[in-house]
């Protein structure tokens, strides 16, 4: 039943994706009851998840793309091999 902090925070991370099992959550909660460090981690983990959700669109948008010149070059190189 007893978890190490490493294991507890792993479950905590899993639960950010709603993929921790019932038993894992139970064990995690018992651990959080006695461990302040992991309690803090757990709280901050939720904040990190919120941040990512909030800024997902910006994070998901590639800051770079292929420019026309790069595509031309790709095309030229490809054509030498066709």
């Amino acid at each position: 039943m007893k978890l190490t902090c490493d294991q507890a925070t792993t479950i905590c991370d899993k639960s950010q994706y709603k993929e921790a099992t019932f038993w894992e959550i139970l064990k995690l909660n018992i651990h959080l009851f006695v461990c302040k460090k992991c309690g803090m981690y757990s709280k901050q983990n939720v904040i990190i998840t919120k941040c990512i959700q909030k800024h997902k669109n910006a994070l998901n948008k590639p800051t770079t793309c292929l420019c026309e010149k790069e595509k031309e070059q790709m095309e030229t190189e490809l054509k030498t091999k066709i």
Binding site: T4, C5, D6, Q7, K37, M40, Y41, Q44, I47, K50, C51, K54, H55, A58, L59
Partner: peptide, 28 residues
């Protein structure tokens, strides 16, 4: 101490205006 936090990696307190900070456009 296997599985325990290494001291300098232990989470420390964050400041109070977290909710406001999440909204900040520069956070990304």
């Amino acid at each position: 101490r296997e599985g325990e936090w290494i001291e300098e990696r232990v989470p420390s307190n964050w400041n109070n205006e977290i909710e406001k900070q999440i909204e900040n456009e520069e956070l990304n």
